[in-house]
Amino acid sequence: MLADAIRSETYRFTRNRMAVFWSILFVPVLFLAIGTAVQFFTKARMAEMAEALPPEMTAEGGPMALSGTLDLGQSLLAQAGDFANPIVMLFVLIGAAIIYAGDYRWETWRLTSARNTRINLVAGKVALVFGVVLVALATWLVFGLIGELIKAAIFERPLAFSFADERPGQFAGLIAVTVTRVMQFTMVGLLAAVMSRSLLAALFVPMVVAIGQFFLMQALPLLAWSAGDLQAHLLIPGLSHDSLKTLVQGGPDAAAAPDGLAWKAITGLTVWTIVPLVAALAWFSRQDLSKE
């Protein structure tokens, strides 16, 4: 029965080409195009930039390295860690909002609601959004690697793929953290969609909440809170995401993290994922679906 809900949601979503393009393809294509243009620009101005930047920046292994071996393993890790950026989240949210609020917008609940339980109907949507997020992540990684290959070709740099030791674990950890963050963001959209029956609300409410949380994060020092305070994580899931990412990536920042940061961050991200989902399920299970 849940399989039926997932199958029907997938069938409908994949026929909505615009939704598929904007939520999955647009951002990777955009970033690839901009990145490639920047690489060509940099190549044209390479000599001037090399003189203007500090030598450690452009040396091999530096953040603006223009020569030396390009490690695709490192690039893959960086790309995975950058997945839950605001632009990706915004465009994935377009697809999620269409999935969550489409039946209200098109008045199609009456066609499907008698064929499955209400829990399954919502669970089917959430499962599809999870699938969309995974496909968006895969597309993001593939286009990121294509960008690195283009960069290597432009600068005539040799390629390597180093993915041993701690890197598989880091990669898995980063994917878990970033995918959870994107799902958490869409859960706010789910709750907004169910409560308001509106596609626009499903889009704008998560954005407004995220903007509010961004400003709250900037105001942490004013509140005398730090990243180690549980209440900060319970209010700002973005802080939890950033904290977990730092811990997974390791290095000096992770070593300097306050005690208990991991479980506080996991708690914050989990609460912001589960609470909207449970609230949406509870609301939807008693909702009058004749008022679409």
């Binding site: 029965m1 039926d4 199958r7 026929r15 489409g102 066609l111």
Partner: peptide, 30 residues
Amino acid sequence: RRMGSMIETPRFPPFMTARQVLGWLSAAHG
């Protein structure tokens, strides 16, 4: 699931064809 219905003016996702609508509802029914 042993019942079908059409109540009030039917509405469908506008981007789908008639054939796709029936394919989608078949999937919803398993």
